[in-house]
């Protein structure tokens, strides 16, 4: 294993940790909007780490380019998707926690 390999392994591990955290976050966070944070943010960083990790395994040729293109595309679409989903959810009537609390207060008063 060369130094690049070690670096690559580290990146892969990190990517795995981020990804796993995101997935766990899907279950652990209290409401939809917080869960979207978990998913979106860790998804992106997981993708970055893993793809960079893989890129280090290549001979730095077309394969690397393709990997980077995947990364580019994921970074482009990931947040876009999350944003669109959040927007839809808001339009669909889903409330965030602060809004819920306010509403509850309104109901009381």
């Amino acid at each position: 294993m060369s130094a690049l390999d070690y670096l690559s392994a580290a990146l892969l591990l990190l990517g795995f940790i981020f990804s796993l955290s995101g997935a766990i976050g899907l279950f652990r966070f209290p409401d939809f909007f917080t869960r979207i944070h978990a998913s979106s943010v860790t998804d992106s960083s997981g993708a970055v780490c893993i793809i960079l990790g893989l890129a280090l395994q290549t001979n730095f040729d077309l394969v690397t380019v393709k990997l980077l293109f995947i990364l580019f595309f994921l970074l482009l679409t990931g947040p876009t998707g999350s944003h669109a989903l959040a927007k839809s959810a808001r339009h669909g009537g889903l409330l965030t926690i602060p809004e819920c609390q306010e509403k509850a207060k309104d109901g009381v008063s």
Partner: peptide, 23 residues
């Protein structure tokens, strides 16, 4: 719990599959 969560899960699954295939 909600459909949006489901979509979120599906989306995440998709992204991870991309990485998986690459790997």
């Amino acid at each position: 719990p909600t459909v949006y969560d489901r979509i979120l899960g599906v989306n995440m699954f998709g992204t991870k599959t991309v990485l998986f295939i690459a790997t």
